[in-house]
Structures are given as structure tokens and as C-alpha cells.
């Protein structure tokens, strides 16, 4: 997954509470120096508006590959560590008793697929300690059929941080920011590579360089979990069989460029061909046929 890069380097103070959750892996952590977050202090009631709390926000997702754990078992270790550290419990509830669906959508959680919330099986705990750096901590636990998830939201006062400018430190980029094409691919699962050139009847990709492929390859190198399929399309000139084969060869040409020259790993990329099945434009004009000879990218997983 792509993460929002930080404009400034933010270090959560070392003296903040350090959690540990047995058997769990920290899967995502995102910090924001100044933001607001909703942390309900009671169950959902119709028409209620949960006031947002402002401050520095840190959101962390822990996952446990153990389908047997209940949401209570998931939150208990963290809750106990916080109580020991002087926190008091403000509110806690479980699924329907929290207010089910409406309650869940008052929570500003990191989105799926990193976080998973089963609306019929979650547990929420809000703890508070004015003396601690993380003065508010919201815990939300849920479980899929294979994995337990705990989402931790911490709120601290913004002035508890020393903000350092990017010029002074060179933070490891959290993720490459997806520009244009990649943003579109992530957003919609599909994008057309508009800058490639193929001659009618030819599967050979021009020499390039093609900005779309450079961008795509850079993203694939960064997002090693991402898998895509390249789908070739032809114009309607020629037989069905020939076009099906040609479109697949076009997609394969692009695959080879990505893998052999631009550093994408072969297991991340597949190629297929749709022939002249899905024209984007009229096959009656040269411009239309040119637009129809194309390769598209479909996101298979991220």
C-alpha cells in the first residue's frame, strides 16, 4: 500500500507509552503533526455528532494471524498496559452495544485493506491520561476469519513535538507519492497507458522512453506486493484470431519492457489480450484506430 508521505519529519516522543501486543505485528503506522480525529465518548445515538479532538495524531494497526482470538482478547493486553501506565478508561463497548454501523463510521480509522472492521464483531476502548504525551488513546479491535486487527489512535499536543524540517533530516520516504497514472490506478483499479506507440499489425513497442512505463515501474519496484495485469487491445483491422494474438503480444512487449529494462519483478506483472473486443473509439478513422491500439493496466492486488 502507498502511504501518505509526511511534509515534515515527525518523531513521536520517546517517552510516550510503548505498546506491545504478544504475537502481533505492527502493520501500518501513520503520524500526522496536526490533525483532528473523532474518538466517541459514548454509544452512538441518532443525530449525535462526535466532537473531533485536535492535536498530533498517530494511528497504528497491529495484526495477529490468529483467527481464534476474540476482540476482548485482542484489546486486553494494550488496555492493561495503559491502565498500568496511569490511564483511566473513559468508555468501552462492543459492536451492537456501541451502536453498530453508525458508531463504526464515526471512527476515523485507517482504511481497508490495512484495517478490517467486522460490523458485528468489534470492540472499542477509549482511555485518557492528561499527564502522558499520548493524552487520549482509542483502541478498536476486530477480526476477520483469519486475522485479528487492533487499530490504535493516539492524540498528543502538537507542541510536544520538535518538528524538524526535511532539509535537516533525510527521512526514508514512507512511500513514493503516486503521481497521475499510479494515483488513478490505485483509485480506480484501472488505467490506460496513453503514451505507448504500436504500428498497425505490429506488436513491437517503440523505443521510448515512455513516461507511463517509467512511473509504473518505479511504483512496482516500491510496492513489491502490487500485482497488475497488462491488457492489450487492437483496432478491428484483421481477423479475430490474429487480433487476439496480437493484443496479447503487445501486452507482453510492455511486460518485457517493465521487467527486463525497468526493474519490475516478473511475479508482479501478467499480460493478456482482448483483441478488438473493447474499442475506445471508432474503427472507421485513423485516429480512432490508433486510440484503439492500446495497453491498459488493471490492478489485481495491492
Amino acid at each position: 500500500m502507498w502511504r501518505v508521505g509526511l511534509a515534515v519529519c515527525l518523531a513521536w516522543p520517546a517517552h510516550a507509552v510503548e505498546f506491545s501486543l504478544p504475537g502481533a505485528a505492527l502493520s501500518v503506522q501513520i503520524e500526522s503533526p496536526g490533525d483532528s480525529v473523532r474518538l466517541p465518548r459514548g454509544r452512538w445515538q441518532d443525530g449525535m455528532e462526535v466532537t473531533a479532538t485536535e492535536g498530533a495524531i498517530r494511528r497504528t494497526i497491529y495484526t495477529v494471524e490468529n483467527p481464534a482470538l476474540t476482540t476482548l482478547q485482542l484489546v486486553t493486553p494494550l488496555r492493561e498496559q495503559l491502565l498500568e501506565a496511569g490511564y483511566t478508561e473513559v468508555f468501552s463497548c462492543a459492536d451492537a452495544a456501541c451502536g453498530g454501523f453508525d458508531f463504526r463510521f464515526q471512527l476515523d480509522l485507517l482504511p481497508a485493506p490495512d484495517m478490517y472492521v467486522d460490523l458485528g464483531n468489534f470492540r472499542y476502548v477509549l482511555l485518557e491520561n492528561p499527564d502522558s504525551t499520548s493524552r487520549l488513546v482509542g483502541l478498536l479491535a476486530s477480526a476477520s476469519s483469519t486475522t485479528g486487527y487492533v487499530h490504535v489512535t493516539e492524540v498528543a499536543d502538537t507542541d510536544a513535538f520538535e518538528l524538524t524540517s526535511p532539509a535537516q533530516t533525510v527521512p526514508e520516504p514512507v512511500r513514493l507519492p503516486p503521481e497521475g497514472l499510479v494515483a488513478n490506478l490505485i483509485e480506480t483499479g484501472h488505467v490506460v497507458l496513453t503514451d505507448l506507440d504500436f504500428a498497425t499489425g505490429s506488436a513491437d513497442l517503440g523505443p521510448g522512453p515512455f513516461a507511463s512505463l517509467n512511473t509504473l515501474a518505479a511504483w512496482l519496484r516500491e510496492e513489491t506486493e502490487a500485482r497488475i495485469v497488462l491488457v492489450g487491445h487492437t483496432d478491428s483491422v484483421g481477423s479475430l484470431e490474429a487480433n487476439a494474438a496480437l493484443s496479447r503480444r503487445r501486452a507482453t512487449s510492455v511486460l518485457e519492457r517493465l521487467v527486463n529494462e525497468l526493474g519490475a519483478r516478473p511475479e508482479q506483472v501478467q499480460a493478456d489480450g482482448a483483441g478488438a473486443l473493447s474499442p475506445v473509439s471508432s474503427n472507421l478513422t485513423a485516429e480512432g484506430r490508433s486510440a484503439n491500439r492500446r495497453v491498459e493496466v488493471v490492478l489485481l492486488s495491492l
Binding site: V231, G273, A274, S278, P279, V298
Partner: peptide, 13 residues
């Protein structure tokens, strides 16, 4: 993928 080929906006067909 071509059994259910994504496209937005929808194609003329």
C-alpha cells in the same frame, strides 16, 4: 481479466 474488463467511463459497446 478480459472476461470482465474494467473501463471507466464505459465504452460505446
Amino acid at each position: 481479466i478480459i472476461d470482465a474488463m474494467p473501463s471507466w467511463p464505459p465504452l460505446a459497446v
